[in-house]
């Protein structure tokens, strides 16, 4: 399978008052075309930082990022937005509270997007077109998050970066979003990096998984490999705990 996105030896250190936080420590990964890649780990493991590094919203201290074989390290997020889009944890905060959904959603879209295309996409996401006239505060959390998926897909980007996109939603809505993502995957070509602390959820959705801890990649592999035969102690502990906390 073709490699669409690659991170090579990425490093990022944050300054927090007087102390330094190593958020990414020599992180390397590959995302293949059409693949759903899960990034799991506990709070503070650096999984969200990795996503922001990939998006270009923050710049790595060192290391390289490539898209389709071409380096884009340090590229401004206004340009990375052409091939990747982010979906955020707090769906409400990812829309301007004063703007109607219609305008927000079209912000990232190319100029020639037709109204039919938009309505078709909303339909795929089980959203009614009349919701476009509403502001984010008037939508439910699930509707709002589906709108942000619509925005990302409509932009034409073929890589979606999802940052804990279901963790603010209840279980039933979460399951809906996950099955919608699986559904659109059949209709539209896109790849995804899916960051979540919920390993059971990632195991259902993603083809491969990366386990992170303290800013480092502990283990990576196909979901099946990792679940059935984890090699690192930390991965074993994480998976065993997750098993005890899911059905």
């Amino acid at each position: 399978m073709k490699e669409i996105l690659e991170g090579i030896h990425l490093n990022k250190i944050f300054r927090d008052g007087d102390s330094l936080v190593v958020a990414a420590n020599d992180v390397s990964f590959t995302l293949h075309e059409g693949e759903f890649l899960g990034i799991v780990g506990e709070s503070g493991c650096g999984k969200s930082t990795l996503l922001r590094l990939v998006s270009g919203l923050i710049k790595p201290d060192s290391g390289e990022l490539t898209h389709d074989g071409e380096a884009y390290t340090g590229m401004s997020p206004a340009k990375t937005g052409r091939f990747l889009q982010m979906i955020f944890q707090d769906a409400y905060a990812s829309f301007d509270p004063h703007m109607r959904m219609h305008r927000s959603i079209l912000e990232a879209a190319p100029k020639n997007v037709s109204e039919e295309e938009l309505v078709q996409l909303l339909d795929d996401l089980h959203l009614e077109a009349k919701l476009l006239e509403k502001r984010p505060g008037e939508l439910s959390g699930g509707q709002c998050q589906r709108m942000s998926i619509a925005r990302a897909i409509l932009s034409g980007a073929d890589i979606l970066l999802c940052d804990e996109i279901t963790s603010a939603l209840d279980v039933v809505t979460e399951a809906q979003i996950v099955s919608l993502l699986q559904g659109i995957r059949q209709k539209r070509e896109f790849s995804m990096m899916f960051v979540s602390h919920n390993i059971a959820l990632v195991s259902q959705l993603c083809d491969r998984m990366i386990v992170m801890h303290d800013g480092q990649i502990v283990e990576a592999g196909t979901t099946k490999e990792l679940l059935e035969n984890p090699k690192q102690e930390y991965t074993k502990k994480l998976i065993a705990s997750s098993r005890m906390q899911s059905l």
Binding site: V172, E174, A175, A200, L227, S246, L247
Partner: peptide, 22 residues
Amino acid sequence: VIDHPQHAYTKQLLESAPRMSA
């Protein structure tokens, strides 16, 4: 409750809850 849920909502919850699967 897990194996033979009676109420519709329980069934929905059980269907929605993520399971560890490869």
